[in-house]
Design a binder for these strands. Sequence first.
DNA 1: TGTTTAAAAGTGGCCAGACCACTTTTTATC
DNA 2: GATAAAAAGTGGTCTGGCCACTTTTAAACA
Lengths: 213, 213
Amino acid sequence: MDKKTEQKKVFLDIVQQLRQLIKTEKIQAGEKLPSERVLSERLGVGRSSVREALRSLELLGLIETRHGGGTFLASTQKHQLVEILSMFILEDEKSKKDVELTRQIHEKEAIRVISCTETLRTLPVWDSFFVKLEIESTINCRDVLREIIITSGNRLSLKVWFQLAVYDGDRLNRNSTEEEKLIIQTMLKSMQLGYEKEALTAYEQWMKTVRSN
Amino acid sequence: MDKKTEQKKVFLDIVQQLRQLIKTEKIQAGEKLPSERVLSERLGVGRSSVREALRSLELLGLIETRHGGGTFLASTQKHQLVEILSMFILEDEKSKKDVELTRQIHEKEAIRVISCTETLRTLPVWDSFFVKLEIESTINCRDVLREIIITSGNRLSLKVWFQLAVYDGDRLNRNSTEEEKLIIQTMLKSMQLGYEKEALTAYEQWMKTVRSN
DNA sequence: TGTTTAAAAGTGGCCAGACCACTTTTTATC
DNA sequence: GATAAAAAGTGGTCTGGCCACTTTTAAACA
């Protein structure tokens, strides 16, 4: 009948029950989960089975454990989707490309949304980037993209993007080159003015230079 | 020194070593891994630690275990990373609107990609939809969208989409109305001819009717 | 010899208990 | 009230056991 209790493997069942537990007890990110021994008793299973479930979630970055301290629900930013992906799956070029493309799907959509929304494209934050570029003459690429995604207002999209951005971390989390600086300025300016097409063209150009580096 | 051996937790270390093992011994998808007891001995750790690592990889769908049979390397198609993560990420996502928008981001991009790619937009599968629409006069909405995402060729995007589609499954997994039928036909036709803009316009129109239902 | 059947070995699933290292809480002392 | 020591709590790991299931091997049979 019940799919939950139909599970063959105890540890998979525990993963489900933990999810349920987090939901019903409204455990927030950073908060503590019951100890392994307590879970073992409450769920009526052996501690080793509880550990198998917890370790699985830990590998994903869904929970954090502190030796002697306890087990804690991790913040969304710490999920390790791409970390694990790259470890086992991203060996082939096709998968790497897919991650990059998927990330860019979200970035492009955010640019579209902002360009088309008066209240978003006229936000003072964009000007602050120009100021920063004038003063320091450079800017962190990842910061620009993140701000764009955040501003677009889709929190789920942001979460997905965060995960994917980890993979390209090295390529994105760095200061812009002289060449990029101009492109980024063009992109932001176009976006501010609501020129969607131009902003996207500049974006594509930017990503092209990123790839070539 | 070595990051691999610097690992604090044995089970994480084992995950790494398993990856190494698979690589060096060239274990292909579907092939058998050493037994838990053998791994335990070879790696010089307890069996419970080996199990914690194996169960972690099993949750991700990276390996498959058969009771009494052994542990096998899973095929690339079966990875469940996105599924598991979405289970936790989507759970605390308050806004259903975000889920819908994010799903549509992937759909729109797929339409763009197909429209711009000769080999994709001329695929016979699109004609088959027209045939089906003529014969049965209706079609499953979800099937159309799924085919579009699949055809776009981004496997990761497909996985993300699939998870998101589960959430408004009821609204999508149904037969098209008379009104929708025309819109879908327009959309597909535009796509086939490479008219990206028209295809997207039709798509937006379609989603509008979906929302109003 | 070839087939079928039964035993044995191999393997994952799960549990109980133990010990260690580390952290948090409590208690005793100053 | 502050500090230090003891106790309790908690994760980290290992050992060994038993069960259920699968695969292999050996035995019996035709």
